[in-house]
């Protein structure tokens, strides 16, 4: 009812608020904020149609720095608040800002259930593999053996593989990106926005204070070619500047030198193929495989939760509600006392 048809143009600058950004200098969150601010004006919507909803954690301060609608909720619950809003205001563009502690620990339940229901919204998961706001405890994505304040002789907690978890929860869009690559990030956010359904983007985000360099192996220019694999739909899986590739032996991925195989034998990325997506999410524990970045899986088949629910409401909508309500009250046997 409040959405206007005529789009009001705005720029990235217009998205800045009067609130001072309070992340630590050098934090990866800045780059993410910039990238989101960069792409929003390109999406053909007015500023008032965007809503950012966050939980608790460093990343969850994000809404305060966006001059859109924003709600900073409680720990782990952003996806639930966002679901209630999206169901009842389906035209809004709803973004959930969350972290590894927020969504994979305390909010794990809402995370998986939101993905399975598939409301049309975008979840940006800032994964820094640490609890930053509470000053440095291991998180559900920290590696085994991690030394932190709460694990002084090493964590014995096995970490989540967030994308495998999401796929297991029947997510319809999963992607991975990194704070150090603005262009790639922006592409992922755009793709997330245009996907109808819940889009999950896992962002490798450096916490330079409590977990500096956690992702350096993927982001550092010299190591990146060997460790990061940038996915392109319908393109063979290549890395190390094309020198290396991956083939599928049945369902088993294998590393090969490209000179040893024909280009036609390589594993070709297919965003719509869930089996291949599953294989790609498993490039996680095995160190020999590079870490995939990009859109790993998209399914356009599943209807969105907000569409389904609103369809039920619209298809049964009662024109004269007051009249129908009266009939409802008198629908059971009633009697007159004279």
């Amino acid at each position: 009812m409040h959405l206007e048809n005529n789009i009001q143009l705005f720029t990235a600058k217009d998205l800045e608020t009067d609130q001072e950004v309070r992340w630590c200098p050098g934090c990866g969150d800045y780059a993410i904020l910039n990238s989101v601010q960069k792409i929003l004006p390109e999406l053909g919507r007015s500023k008032n149609e965007f809503v950012f909803i966050s939980g608790i954690g460093c990343s969850s301060r994000f809404p305060y720095y966006m001059d859109t609608y924003g709600l900073h909720s409680i720990h782990g619950r952003a996806a639930s608040v966002a679901t209630g809003l999206k169901l009842t205001r389906p035209k809004l563009s709803v973004w959930v800002i969350t972290g590894d502690g927020d969504s994979l620990s305390i909010g794990g339940n809402h995370f998986i259930h939101t993905l399975r229901r598939n409301p049309d919204m975008n979840i940006l998961l800032f994964n820094n593999q640490i609890y930053g706001l509470t000053k440095g405890q291991f998180s559900p994505t920290s590696e085994i053996g991690k030394i932190t304040k709460s694990s002084p002789i090493g964590s014995v907690d096995s970490p989540f593989n967030p994308l495998a978890l999401s796929l297991g929860a029947n997510a319809t869009f999963i992607a991975r990106t990194m704070d150090r690559d603005a262009k790639h990030q922006q592409e992922m956010y755009r793709r997330a926005y245009y996907h109808k359904g819940t889009s999950l983007v896992e962002i490798y985000q450096n916490c330079n204070v409590f977990n500096d360099g956690a992702f350096e192996v993927f982001t550092d220019k010299s190591q990146k070619p060997l460790t990061a694999l940038f996915l392109e739909n319908n393109q063979p899986l290549l890395f190390d500047e094309g020198r290396k590739g991956i083939i599928l032996d049945g369902l088993k991925p294998k590393l090969v030198a490209t000179e040893d195989v024909s280009i036609n034998d390589l594993f070709v990325h297919d965003e719509g193929d869930k089996t291949k997506a599953f294989i790609l999410t498993q490039f996680f524990d095995e160190e020999e495989f590079p870490r995939p970045f990009g859109v790993i899986y998209v399914s356009k088949e599943k209807a969105t939760f907000d569409d389904l629910m609103n369809l039920q409401i619209e298809s049964t909508e009662i024109a004269d509600k007051a009249k129908a309500f009266k009939e409802l009250l008198y629908s059971k046997n009633y009697w007159e006392k004279k």
Partner: peptide, 13 residues
């Protein structure tokens, strides 16, 4: 209400 033109704002806990 979110969506209203010109009333963008942030609230939280």
């Amino acid at each position: 209400i979110p969506g209203s033109v010109g009333l963008e704002h942030r609230i939280g806990g």
